[in-house]
Amino acid sequence: MSVRLLVVDDHPVVRAGLRSMLADTAIEVTGEAATADQALEVFPSASPHVVLTAVRLGDSDGIELISRLRANGLNASTLCFSGHDNPTYVARAMSAGAAGYLLKSVSREELLSAIEAAAAGEECWTSQDRRRHKGPIPTELLRQNLEVTLTKRESEVLKQLSFGLTNKEIANALGLRYDTVKEHVQHVLRKLAVNDRTQAAVWAVRKGLV
């Protein structure tokens, strides 16, 4: 059976490379998009079994696209295809319902296998991915549904952190000094009683903050 694929990536070279790579396979690229908005527009005509999306899409976000597809009743398995080995991205993608998270360094065979598995309704998460997502996050806080009081700025920093941004990128995005962002991140980690940024991102995802 032929697998229909929608490729979402803001780099034309990547999209062209994937189309060329898949040309002689049972996987047909039936649509391309550079942004999340374009992906939503193209989806009906592409009628994909699988959506292969980058995480960073310029002015949009590939993981948010996964949620938007579901909210619009556009059903297809989704795979993240990223150049960033970022555990916060993995955590968000898993929580959003993606079938897997692939690095752009994977082999052709691994990519084909993952797309075919996703088309068949299977997941492609590794044991390491699952450990990242289900690791030692503040389960006591979640279980008791305790409220954590963050300032408006801390909440903004947590959201940007959960998008996988570095302190420098957060500073640029929010117009803050690097040292100020670093201080806010430390406050967030302490208030959430977590050990690192990944755990904070998972907490934010599970609480529906991002």
Rank of each mutant, 00 (worst) to 15 (best):
L52I: 04
L189M: 09
Q199V: 01
V157Q: 02
A91L: 05
R206A: 00
E169G: 02
Q128Y: 14
E154K: 11
A91G: 09
S20K: 15
L150T: 12
K207R: 15
E156F: 03
S45C: 00
L40H: 05
L161E: 01
G175L: 00
L40D: 04
A33H: 08
L111H: 05
S155Q: 10
D37E: 15
V210I: 07
D59W: 10
K104L: 10
G97Y: 03
V8D: 08
C80I: 15
W125A: 05
K168F: 02
R56W: 07
A71P: 02
T30G: 00
D59G: 10
D59C: 06
N195K: 15
L18M: 15
D24R: 10
L112H: 09
L165F: 11
A204S: 11
G31M: 01
G62L: 08
V14G: 07
K191Y: 06
A171N: 03
A36R: 06
S82G: 08
H11C: 12
S45P: 00
E156N: 06
P48S: 04
P44M: 07
L22E: 07
Q128V: 14
L209K: 06
S82M: 04
V205L: 12
V194F: 10
H84N: 12
R131C: 00
P138Y: 09
R143H: 08
K159N: 11
T180Q: 09
G73K: 05
L142W: 09
V202T: 13
P136V: 07
V8F: 06
T25G: 01
L150P: 08
H84R: 03
V185C: 13
S82I: 03
V185A: 07
A23Q: 13
Y101I: 12
V181W: 03
D85A: 15
D61I: 03
S155Y: 09
D37W: 13
L18C: 13
D37H: 14
Y178D: 08
R197C: 02
H49K: 03
S105Q: 15
